[in-house]
Each structure stands twice: as C-alpha cells, then as structure tokens.
C-alpha cells in the first residue's frame, strides 16, 4: 500500500472500523514507514487534545434566564407526527372496523374468483344459442325412448317455467291429451328447436364430478296428475336424477313444482 493510501485511511484506522486485513496492512506499513508513522502520531495527538477539552459550565443566571423565557412560552403542544406510510397503515389496520372490512373484502374476492373458476367443464356456462347444441344433451341417451315431453302452459302459469325434453318423443297422457308441438302458447322442445321467445337463456348443467349439484325449479301445468308424475319419474330415473314433486291444486288444475335434475336441459320461457 502506498503512503498516500495509508494516510487516507488513518482516520478509519483510528476509529477501528477497517476490515481486519486492511488494518493489518496499515499496521505493518506504519511499523516500517517513518513518514507515515509521524503523520499517525500527529493525528492521534490532535484528536486526543480535542477529546480532552473540558466540559464547560454556562454563566451564572443561565438557567434562571432560560426558565423565564420558557414561562413566557405557550404550553408545548404535541405536533402532528410525521409518520411513515406503513406506521399509518398499521395503526388503521388495528381498528375493528378495518378488520371487519378486510375479512369481508377477502370473502368477496374469494367468492368472485371461485365463481369464475373453470375446471374440466365443472361450471355453469351459457349454452350456445344454436338449438342442436343444447338439445344434444339428452340425445346422448339413445336407448331412453320412453322419456316424454311435458308442456308448459304459459297462459296459466305466468312464472318462467322450464321444459324437460327428449328428442323425438311426445307425451301421451291417459286421457289422450297429446301436447301439440309448436303450437302457440306451448313450449315444446323438439330437436332443433329452442324457445327463447321471452328472453331466457338456455343453460346446460354440465356433468359434474360430484362437486356441483345442479338443480332446477320447474313449474308445469298438467291436465292429469298421475300421468305427469309417471312421466316425470321415468325421466328422472333414466337420467339418474332425483325429483321432489310437491303438488299444488290451483284453479282445478294440478301443478307440479320443484324438481332437481342432473344432466337435463332446462329451458325457460
């Protein structure tokens, strides 16, 4: 190490803040360089003279004069503290309302995200309005030809109803009251036809892996209850579904309501 480099580091050497390797180099240099050693001795002497300067007492009357000035001052007031941003946040986060709001926000975000979660088709998704795509759901069961069409009579039932369909079949009730496909006021789903006339979207309940339980509420007017129950039972059995059928008497006509289905097309008006 050159003498100039050593002299520049003497102050740090004096304070003992150099790395041990550097300290050893300087120590060795001072031992063999008289010029640098003289500089070192002058530096340590000057610093020690400064350190030895005595503590001084203020002149008489200093404290009395000071307290007189202080008595004339207004009482000290705690100034608004210039806190850092995380100190402010941590204070706010300790309040009860903030904790409640935080939990609510996390729950809302979780529900929002999971509702959008797509996984192997385990989701509710709008059906392509092209008719053959929606109706193809039950078309995948070609052996089940005994499923029936159940007709909704919107004139009697103002609530949005739903129709359970199977392609190519029609209902024949014991009193031979056959529904009339495509008749005005009757929503009969045939292959290739979906009635979206009142703005309801068709949805398909996708096959689940036991995670999603699909349900639909159906309100169906029937002319003969026993035949309709039989038909409904056949449909639900053939599709491995369950149904709960409370029966309502209304204006002399029986009404079926509330079915729970899986893999059925639900078509609302």
């Amino acid at each position: 190490m050159r003498c100039q480099d050593v002299m520049e580091k003497l102050s740090l050497y004096l304070d003992g803040v150099l790395e041990s390797s550097e300290r050893e180099v300087i120590k060795a240099h001072l031992a063999c360089c008289p010029a640098c050693r003289a500089e070192w001795e002058e530096l340590t002497l000057s610093v020690s003279l400064l350190q030895e300067l005595p503590e001084l007492a203020p002149p008489a009357g200093f404290r009395a004069g000071l307290m007189e000035k202080i008595d004339q001052l207004p009482a000290p007031v705690r100034a608004p503290q210039n806190k850092r941003w995380f100190e402010r946040i941590s204070e706010v986060s300790k309040s009860r309302w903030y904790q409640t709001a935080a939990v609510a926000a996390v729950m809302a975000m979780t529900l929002g995200l999971t509702s959008l979660w797509e996984k192997d088709g385990n989701q509710f998704m709008p059906v392509d309005p092209r008719p053959d795509k929606g109706i193809a759901q039950l078309g995948e069961h070609p052996g089940k030809t005994d499923t029936n069409n159940v007709t909704v009579d919107p004139g009697v039932e103002p609530d949005p109803g739903a129709v359970v369909t199977d392609p190519g079949t029609q209902v024949e009730t014991p009193n031979n009251s056959t529904t009339k496909p495509n008749q005005p006021g009757n929503a009969v789903n045939e292959p290739g036809k979906v009635d979206n006339g009142r703005g309801f979207e068709s949805i398909v309940m996708q096959p689940s892996e036991g995670i999603i339980s699909s349900s639909a509420t159906l309100r169906i007017d029937v002319q003969e209850l026993s035949a309709a129950l039989k038909t409904l039972g056949t449909i639900t059995q053939s599709n491995s579904a369950q149904s709960k059928v409370p029966i309502l008497k209304m204006a002399g006509r029986d009404k079926l309501a509330s079915g729970s289905y899986d893999q059925l097309q639900v078509h609302s008006k």
């Binding site: 102050s11 740090l12 004096l14 500089e39 002058e42 530096l43 002497l45 000057s46 610093v47 400064l50």
Partner: peptide
C-alpha cells in the same frame, strides 16, 4: 477524515 487532517 479531512477535518481531522485539517485540525492536525
């Protein structure tokens, strides 16, 4: 460092 040098 410079202050000490100046004082010295």
């Amino acid at each position: 460092s410079r202050a000490r040098q100046a004082l010295k």
